[in-house]
Simulated scan of single mutants.
Amino acid sequence: MARYSNSQIALHWLTAVLIGLIIALPYGRDFFGDFLGGTGGVFVLHKSLGLAVLALTVLRLLVRARHGAPQILPPDAVWQQRAAKAGHALLYLLLVLMPLSGLLFGKRPLELFWLIPLEPLPLSDTTRAAAKWFHVTAQWLLFAMILGHALMALVHHYGKRDGVLAAMLPAARG
């Protein structure tokens, strides 16, 4: 059965875990704030993880360019292949644009993981407002894409039983 490379699998699941945490942080700011020194700490981690996801996404795109994507759908499933390619392209685009838009709308300095100070970019209030609007609005599209991505993986695994999900799962040792 065709599979993604080990590096693609590791980067995918690391990205998935980080995105889950990135999403949880602002919505659970009261809970997480107790551990991170308040709301400010929650958003330091949110933004830092967002930039980490941006770096991982660039790495993922480089690895994908090198290794390609395995042919895991049947050759005659043309519309499914096109839908999968479009969905993946949109997910990658959002994984690049969400952290960038978050970085653009920030007015305060950011200490990346409390270690590396990053000054805000010298942008107009109009540009910051547009970036914030995009970031806050596009999150809903990202949520929908993540849910759709996971749902389709489950449909392939439990409904079609065609090995699509297994191609992105770590290989079982035996």
Rank of each mutant, 00 (worst) to 15 (best):
R3G: 08
R3Q: 11
Q8H: 03
H12N: 14
A16Q: 14
I19P: 10
G28T: 11
G28Y: 10
D30Y: 06
D30L: 02
F31Y: 13
F35K: 01
G37L: 02
G37K: 01
G38P: 11
G38I: 13
H46D: 12
L51G: 06
A52G: 04
A52F: 15
A55L: 13
L56T: 06
V58Q: 01
L61T: 01
L62V: 15
V63I: 08
R64F: 01
R66I: 08
G68H: 09
P70W: 11
Q71D: 09
L73R: 05
P74W: 05
D76M: 04
A77P: 02
V78E: 11
V78T: 10
R82D: 00
K85Y: 01
A89D: 07
L90Y: 14
L91P: 05
L95T: 08
L100Q: 03
L103C: 04
L104G: 03
K107E: 11
F113G: 02
F113R: 02
F113I: 03
P117W: 08
L118Y: 04
E119V: 01
E119G: 10
E119D: 12
L121Y: 03
L123N: 03
T126K: 00
T126G: 13
T127V: 12
R128G: 05
A130D: 11
A130S: 13
W133F: 00
F134W: 07
Q139K: 10
A144N: 12
M145G: 07
G148I: 11
H149G: 09
A150H: 05
M152T: 13
A153F: 00
L154C: 04
G159N: 04
K160S: 06
K160V: 00
D162P: 03
D162H: 08
A167F: 03
A167K: 09
P170F: 09
P170G: 08
G174A: 15
